[in-house]
Amino acid sequence: MSTTDWPLWEVFVRSRRGLAHTHAGSLHAPDAELALRNARDLYTRRGEGVSIWVVPSSAITASSPDEKDPFFEPSADKPYRHPTFYEIPEGVKHL
């Protein structure tokens, strides 16, 4: 049956101009061209998109949930990266 197994593709849709592509879901297709067309038929049939990306699922590299702490926690204790960290006297504008 392996000859009929079409690979899996991840679909990203730009819902309108000015917005980024976001992950919409996935589908099976034998190649990139049909993947793009299947994505158009499946994920934009109610006018949800103006542009589509398809990416073979196997081509995506992801962070592992096991690395969650070393990856993402160190950024949680650096409040000076956020504007709310700083106190500005009342009445100062455009800052």
Binding site: L8, I60, T61, A62, S64, P65
Partner: peptide, 17 residues
């Protein structure tokens, strides 16, 4: 780091176990 963000078709033997 691991491949395949959204799924791990090989099962869960490699990560999160």
């Amino acid at each position: 780091m691991a491949t395949a963000a959204t799924r791990d078709t090989a099962g869960t033997t490699a990560y999160g176990t």
